[in-house]
Design a binder for these strands. Sequence first.
DNA 1: ATGGTTGCTTAGCAA
Length: 257
Amino acid sequence: MKLATWNLNSIRARLPRLVAWLGLRQPEVLCLQELKVSEEQFPFPEIEAAGYHAAVFGQRTYNGVAILSRSPLQDIEVGFGPQDDDPAARLISARVGDLRVLSAYVPNGQVVGSEKWAYKLAWLQRLRRHLDERADPKDKLALCGDLNVAPEARDVQNPAAWEGSVLYCPEARAALEQVLAFGLVDAFRLHHAEGGLYSWWDYRMLAFPKNDGLRIDHLLLTAPLATLCTSAFIDRNERKGQQPSDHAPVVIELALD
DNA sequence: ATGGTTGCTTAGCAA
């Protein structure tokens, strides 16, 4: 089965592309970020017509995450739980069979040292704590989404230029490493050691034609799931053409029923 | 090159 993640940058602006892509790649499960719609505005009819169930944590204008699945989604949880005071819709999780899937939209952080930056680092710490409290690294769990951190230099086209940015700096990398230290592995790096493969390119400055990108969208797997991951790829074609998202989908294959 | 683009909401913010 295919498991994928895609920051859509508005599901309304991207709905035709999303529906076409579901038909083309036919993922079993797809994690979405940056819906930019409330649950009332979510296009359930079109998603159901494409053959998918949807668990949605929406928000008007900003943020918003969802999980689409061909089979029913169970045990849906939004945010960090009942005690959560985060005003942003950035996390949803659901169970598909014996697989737990989380769709996360980590705060961008805007500028290192800003209030939004402190919020980003705190959010990543809270995500780790959430995993510690709610999950077991011995279970089959996939943390997917726009994590807004490039883990290593090979995940950045121009590391010298990006070093110190919110997407690629020591503090952000360390915060992501703490999430991974729960017991997760980067599925993409199980199958690709090379650089030059990115999931996000700025709309500005001809970043995509220059391949000035970063790999900030990730599928992180617990060990029992990582052993079942047989391939991974970034669907770079989806960044091309009319009205693309600034992110490309990332897809892995899992040897599950 | 302190630039540049996109989406939501309507002038400014976030990415």
